[in-house]
């Protein structure tokens, strides 16, 4: 329980600092928000009026307070470029990223756990050798290049999907997932390779432990030893990697969106950066960072659940 409370406090404090940093980062930018919004054509009085409306004449910390309060209520401000509420724009774009992240993560788990166990179990033998070589290569391929290759092979050559033919989930769920599965594969592959590499060495370490011999001495088969004894132990050090992998997956989805021309958060982010549309940039970054921190918190909880020793340490 102490462990849980401690982790929860860390979560809250981190979230607070993330919001503060993200807010302050965009305060130091030279330039005037009112100017960006109205354009250079507006008169000085008009700009002054807008500045007051936006609260830009108040002290920075007060502005932060107001911003945080609004943000908490789901009001993320208004886009300079489109004059639309940022929250609405994000809500519209977010499902694609969530779907990609979830699918990539699940693929990573589904592939790297069995293969990692296999490679660790047969370390040094042929299946392991083959996997190790493949891993080195897959890990070296940049995410967006993997995306391009997948577009070529599955899209242009095999016609399994139409590149650029993104289907919104409002039109068809199956079309939505059917299209997003390909960028998800592109993101998941390098993560799988990394996951297999880590789990392999973890399994090799665990197989040398005394409790494995004990498990055999009670009559467990090799598969039983691996699944009901070794797996849980060897996953412990991998959990941290998974948490980091999620952050990476989210970041990769921003890039892979461009490869597969998906109108998601990444496209919006890049556009907004080019247009200097700061409320949008700010909101997206706070959201993503918040998501990553929350996932880290959940992984910490997971540690507490599967590692019985942690309660005492924390």
């Amino acid at each position: 329980m102490k462990y849980l409370i401690k982790k929860f406090c860390t979560l809250i404090i981190t979230l607070f600092f993330i919001s503060l940093l993200s807010f302050l980062a965009f305060q130091v930018i030279p330039g005037d928000a009112a100017l960006s919004k109205l354009g250079t054509g507006a008169t000085e009085q008009k700009r002054e009026k807008l500045r007051r409306e936006m609260g830009l004449d108040r002290p920075v910390l007060e502005q932060y307070g107001i911003w945080l309060k609004n943000f908490g209520q789901g009001n993320m401000g208004e886009s300079y470029t489109y004059s639309l509420p940022v929250s609405e724009m994000i809500r519209e774009k977010m499902p694609a990223n969530l779907a990609i992240t979830a699918m990539s993560f699940l693929m990573m788990l589904a592939v790297s756990i069995p293969l990692g166990l296999l490679a660790g179990r047969y370390a040094g033998r042929i299946p392991d050798r083959i996997l190790t070589v493949c891993n080195q290569f897959v890990m070296a391929v940049p995410g967006f290049f993997m995306g391009i290759l997948i577009t070529c092979v599955f899209g242009l050559a095999l016609h399994w999907f139409t590149p650029g033919g993104y289907v919104s989930y409002q039109e068809s769920w199956s079309g939505f997932f059917g299209y997003l599965i390909f960028p998800s594969i592109a993101i998941a592959l390098p993560k799988c390779a990394m996951g297999v590499k880590l789990l392999r060495s973890s399994v090799i370490g665990e197989l040398g432990q005394d409790y494995v011999r004990t498990a055999y001495s009670r009559g467990n088969s090799q598969a039983q030893v691996l699944l009901s004894h070794v797996l849980k132990n060897s996953l412990l050090p991998i959990l941290t990697f998974w948490a980091l992998a999620i952050a990476d997956i989210v970041a990769s989805s921003v890039i892979l969106e461009q490869v597969f021309t998906i109108p998601g958060l990444g496209t919006l982010l890049v556009q907004s950066i080019s247009n200097r549309d700061y409320p949008v940039v700010q909101a997206i970054i706070v959201l993503i960072a918040g998501l990553v921190v929350t996932i880290n918190f959940l992984v910490d909880l997971l540690y507490g659940i599967i590692d019985p020793r942690i309660e005492l340490r924390g």
Binding site: T14, A25, L269, A289, V292, V293
Partner: peptide
């Protein structure tokens, strides 16, 4: 650490 590298660079 909460921010993925590339996102931080984008900021």
């Amino acid at each position: 650490v909460a921010f993925p590298n590339i996102l931080l660079a984008l900021i």
